[in-house]
């Protein structure tokens, strides 16, 4: 694993790396290098299998993190390629030419995070949601609790008490 990382570092600009286990590490690269790195890993380093592609919303920094998790079946190791993309008008180059299954991930990311992968097959078709008219729901600024309170009705008759406030109200209301 260490060797591969060294090899990658000699070819790509790795801005951050995190070795999780001896069979799993995460490497961060610039958006422009991400697809080349993923392709390089697939074609030259045996990371032929895509375990998953997903996003993490770092709303505070204004970024989406994309993680391409690749598996090398012969060395039995995994590399997570991370890249940060701008949250505004989030787009990423599609990789549907690399794996047949990645278009599903890209469709889901479009729907759930609003990240576009232009050219990816059926990218604009609904995947899980149908007739969704709110912001993409897996973004951090979509508040599930608020949404459910507005969309569904609470069961009437529920009320609760905070022990400390309740005790104050009963035992020392004026302090």
């Amino acid at each position: 694993m260490q060797q591969i990382i060294q090899d990658i570092e000699s070819r790509f600009t790795i801005t951050d790396k995190e070795t999780r286990r001896n069979d799993l590490c995460f490497l961060t690269v610039d958006k422009l290098q991400a697809i080349s790195l993923v392709t390089y890993l697939r074609d030259y380093q045996g990371y032929a299998s895509l375990t998953l592609l997903t996003a993490v919303d770092w709303i505070e920094e204004g970024n989406f993190q994309l993680t391409y998790l690749l598996n090398n079946p012969s060395t039995r190791t995994e590399i997570g390629v991370r890249t940060m993309i701008d949250r505004e008008n989030a787009t990423m180059e599609s990789t549907h030419h690399l794996w047949e299954n990645i278009q599903t991930y890209q469709r889901e990311l479009k729907e759930m995070f609003g990240i576009d992968f232009p050219g990816s097959p059926r990218i604009d078709e609904d995947f899980i949601l149908e007739g969704w008219d709110n912001i993409p729901p897996y973004r951090r600024d979509f508040d599930t609790k608020k949404y459910s309170e507005e969309t569904y009705f609470p069961r009437p008759g529920r009320e609760t008490n905070d022990p400390s406030t309740y005790m104050k109200s009963k035992l020392y209301p004026n302090d």
Binding site: D162, P163, S164, T165, M167, K168, L171, Y172, D175
Partner: peptide, 12 residues
Amino acid sequence: ECGICTATCPAH
């Protein structure tokens, strides 16, 4: 964080 103690503390 139950806060049971607050009532018992004379200064709350």
